[in-house]
Nucleic acid binder design. Sequence first.
DNA 1: CTAGTTGCAAAGAGTTTGCATGGCG
DNA 2: CGCCATGCAAACTCTTTGCAACTAG
Lengths: 149, 149
Amino acid sequence: MKAEYNTRQRALILNFLKENSAHVSARDIINHLKEQGLSVGTATIYRTLDRLTEQGIIKKFVIDERSGACYQFVHGAECNEHFHLKCIKCGALIHMDCEFIAEIEEHFFKEHGFTVSSGKTVIYGKCARCSNCGRDEGHDTYSRCSCKH
Amino acid sequence: MKAEYNTRQRALILNFLKENSAHVSARDIINHLKEQGLSVGTATIYRTLDRLTEQGIIKKFVIDERSGACYQFVHGAECNEHFHLKCIKCGALIHMDCEFIAEIEEHFFKEHGFTVSSGKTVIYGKCARCSNCGRDEGHDTYSRCSCKH
DNA sequence: CTAGTTGCAAAGAGTTTGCATGGCG
DNA sequence: CGCCATGCAAACTCTTTGCAACTAG
């Protein structure tokens, strides 16, 4: 395993991601740090985000190809065993601990020979609140579902 | 409704999409037409693809933010429900037209209130060949599944 | 004739890379 | 000290836009 240095820049980026449980874009980080007068190179931001993603410390999303990727801090290691639902309207990340996932994985494996990697997979769509209210604005929600259907 | 002109360029693009039932990127079209010696401007390709998408004649997908959007001719209404499976080993993209997807969408909606956007969702995992042979190298495969399980 | 289309080139946005310098351990 | 990380600027890719010329109906 490659050594990881704890640099000022890495700490700044990680900290910002921890404080903002919602999705954050590379641009958000760049702007935030610039506002704080803390200079961190653009390339460093992207490289650090890549590393953090590889290490599973944060998760990367692509909601809209136009506006680029979003990143989000992952709270805990258990996130490898379930699906993530990402609302394309408000950006909410929903952790789905549902037994139905076993069914999904079974189908894909038995019928398609495909071994699903649930930790890497993100289902995109509209969350309950956004589906109902029809608002285009975000809710800035971070919700979690742990149903047992 | 805006009038639609049948131009040489529009016909060429639509024809290429019809001949390639699989995903086709803007670059594919640009390259294909260049090879044929048929000159069509890049901007025209994008503008035409946008129009065709708006009219529902083709469908737009974003599988990988790096390689840009893909387009696909729609042979009817059934094409609205499909997922993409992406092999994390060989990179194969599997286009899945499977009735099980309706079940998945139903579960997510009924139990989680979540409206799945199948066009944006990509399931990651290992394809049949990579699961079996254990190779780390890519197969460069492009396969299509149209099972009816 | 007239509104929709095209082509070219230039602009943009997001992201990556090369290379010399800097700094963690 | 060695290796990893950083910064800067240039490069890249995909896509969009401005504008004058063109063409289908």
